[in-house]
Computed example of a mutant assay.
Amino acid sequence: MVSAGLVLLVVLALTFDFTNGFHDAANAIASAVSTKALSLRGALLLAGVMNLLGALAGTGVAVTVAKGVIATPSAADGLTVIIAAVIGAITWNLITWYFGLPSSSSHALIGGLVGAALASATTVQWQGVLTKVLLPMVISPAVGLLLGYFLMTAMLWLLKSADAHKANRGMRRAQIFSSASLAFGHGLQDAQKSMGIIVLGLVITGHQTDFSVPFWVILSCALALALGTSAGGLRIMRTLGRRIFPLTPPHGFAAEVSGASVLYFTAFVFAAPISTTHVITSAIMGVGATRRRSAVRWAVAGNIVTAWVLTLPAAATVAALVYSLTRLF
């Protein structure tokens, strides 16, 4: 029999996926829209479809979230722990969306899990948090920045003798494919976090004994993320597309290819839940630095990094407070 708590968990997990979609829609389409490679409506539709397809492409990250961050909570209050974690993540998503800061939905969810686990005396698997969350959190943006810088440097060398107008027109067309690949990577990474949460709930309530992901979970999370992406995220899009660095079509293409490459590699090779936000933002910084270091608005970048650093502890704190409040009733 399906409990009301499990139903609430599924609803909250899908709500998180929806907020993840409109919060992170800018990741995939900001550069394509800012360079006029795609219209806003066309970009949102493309991102939504590719998010859906990406979410159907794998479950390795979902399994990592389900069993690699915290030990399976006790049946007595396990659902309360997970529900508090998701509420913490949703709260931080909404706060950073309101202020237009491209923070990490992925790390908000991980932070929520850790905070709720600590408040409930559930074991945190610190080794898994270190190797699957903290190290990738540091390494993946660095790789995105360097890859963006070197790819843009190579493109500048290849295009140095090309007609600027023709090159920009060709790059705008290429950006349709690069932004689609980035949206696919976003779906591949971010939809799986909510899948892992629902699977953990199913294990806690005894509806399954392993951490395999049922197809209905995959499909529902994919649809929620795609719908959220289609709703858009204009506040964050302005930050990524204009405020960090004024992108041109070649810059946008290089950033998107760099970001997508990191997302695919970490999802398929390491099953690590990295942040699409961190990767694409760093890639934009990297391509911008090829013009000159002062071309990147480092003050804006500093505000973004501050949001990155605060995400884990902030979401953890909210989740711990939510769990503690439930103990009063």
Rank of each mutant, 00 (worst) to 15 (best):
A37T: 11
W92F: 13
D17E: 14
T306F: 15
S258W: 05
I197Q: 09
S212F: 02
Q125H: 12
T266P: 00
V217D: 12
S74L: 00
H107C: 13
L118F: 10
A174V: 07
V7H: 04
L6S: 01
G128Y: 09
H251T: 13
F253A: 15
A121F: 00
A25W: 03
A316S: 10
G288R: 07
L118C: 02
V309D: 10
G144L: 04
T248I: 10
M195V: 04
I90N: 07
M171I: 05
A299S: 13
A316K: 03
V262H: 05
L223M: 13
T64C: 05
R297I: 03
T229H: 06
M137A: 15
F253G: 11
L40V: 15
S275M: 12
L134R: 06
T266Y: 15
L219K: 06
I274M: 12
A224C: 08
A254N: 12
A231V: 03
L223T: 10
G187D: 07
T91D: 01
V7Y: 10
A47G: 06
P313Q: 03
M285N: 04
A89L: 03
T229R: 06
G187F: 04
V287E: 14
I70N: 00
V33T: 15
V138K: 04
L312P: 02
L147A: 11
V287F: 11
A174E: 02
T266K: 01
A164C: 00
S324L: 06
V129T: 10
S161K: 13
I218V: 14
L118P: 01
T248E: 15
G88I: 01
I204L: 01
R173S: 10
A283I: 05
V262D: 08
I218D: 06
E256P: 11
A121E: 03
S179I: 01
L227F: 13
I218E: 09
R242W: 14
T72V: 04
V309P: 11
A231L: 07
S161W: 05
V269G: 00
V10S: 05
A32L: 12
M137F: 15
A320L: 00
L113N: 07
F184H: 04
V296H: 10
F16D: 04
L94F: 09
A254Q: 12
M152R: 14
L109E: 11
L9V: 06
S261F: 12
L159F: 15
S194E: 02
F215T: 09
R41V: 10
L159M: 13
H251R: 12
A255P: 03
I218L: 13
G5M: 02
K36R: 15
V10G: 08
I274S: 05
M152D: 13
T290C: 08
T311F: 09
S39D: 08
S294D: 15
I198D: 14
A260S: 14
G21N: 12
Q208D: 02
S140W: 01
P249I: 07
M171S: 09
A66V: 04
